[in-house]
Design a protein around this nucleic acid. Structure first.
Lengths: 159, 159
DNA sequence: TTGGAATAAGATAAAGAGATCCGAATCGCC
DNA sequence: GGCGATTCGGATCTCTTTATCTTATTCCAA
């Protein structure tokens, strides 16, 4: 569901998001804070910079920072350049002819499942994560049974 | 989101589901019909047999068949023995302390996303796939914009 | 201009998934 | 019991992912 690389990328991005949109952070600092192998993290951050999610600054005082406002960076922006999400495109059962009209037995089922997953990834931003966390801390302990739909509902209200 | 192995397993199981709950099918037959490398498929089917999802019969006329009623086999039953779903357990950001009360910034977000995905996998059965397909064929062409939630809703009505 | 500090980039090693092959064991049938 | 068909299990190989290392390249400050 999420490769090691994708998980590392999320860790780094959340760290940078909390760090602010202006300050540069070095690879060593991020690696130490997120418990990720430094050299490997460097590779991942390079890819994210190439994808336009991060900005890098060489030389003294340099490092990485988010390239735009947190509300404009989705989880998909972070994961897509690193993982092979194209696994979804094309029929799961390998049929050449498979669409909404002429569908393989799994088409509708898988479209529903993957659609919700990909949709959540596409619409959840780093800003949402920060917002929801603050909100969650306020209502902490109110619900014994946490409501999985709450986050998704709050996304829709954002408009 | 779904490894090659998991996809192959789904292909084979859907094929066997359509074949009926009583007839045995050989590896060569299944591999040819689903376009999966025969030797590798044999390994996968062995694992599924060990997991109790399939029953195998050696000798002439032998092969594999589903071990129980289609309504009792979920997509999770098929995928779980083959993939490392334990990637979800534990904090995505690597924090030791991370639960509903004391959560990392990603905890609630990821719980919502993965909860929907895993829930769908756990509750969708091979029978659902057959049912929904029949239903979809009946209403074919009625909706230009297919409703992703329809399948999930129909699952709940099953009780 | 020089030196220190940082990222960029490529080569490479280790680990795991994906895929293949072969011999052994098992079953039905003759 | 012997034969053919089939699954089972282990050994092996390849490819991708993960991780490390080394060498440039770039920037800032003195």
């Amino acid at each position: 569901m999420l490769t090691q690389t994708g998980e590392y990328a999320l860790r780094a991005m959340v760290y940078l998001a909390r760090k602010g949109e202006n300050a540069y952070s070095g690879v060593k600092e991020i690696a130490a804070a997120t418990d990720v192998p430094p050299n490997y993290l460097a590779k991942i951050l390079q890819q994210l910079a190439r994808a336009g999610v991060l900005e890098s600054q060489k030389g003294f005082g340099g490092g990485f920072k988010v390239a735009r406002k947190l509300s404009k960076i989705t989880l998909m922006d972070i994961i897509d350049p690193l993982e092979r999400i194209e696994k979804f495109k094309g029929c799961v059962l390998g049929q050449r002819l498979c669409n909404d009209e002429v569908a393989c037995p799994l088409h509708h089922t898988w479209k529903a499942i993957s659609g919700q997953y990909l949709g959540a990834l596409r619409e959840t931003t780093l800003q949402d994560i920060a917002d929801f966390r603050r909100k969650a801390e306020q209502v902490e302990g109110a619900d014994a049974q946490p409501n999985y739909g709450e986050l998704l509902a709050s996304r829709e209200k954002r408009g």
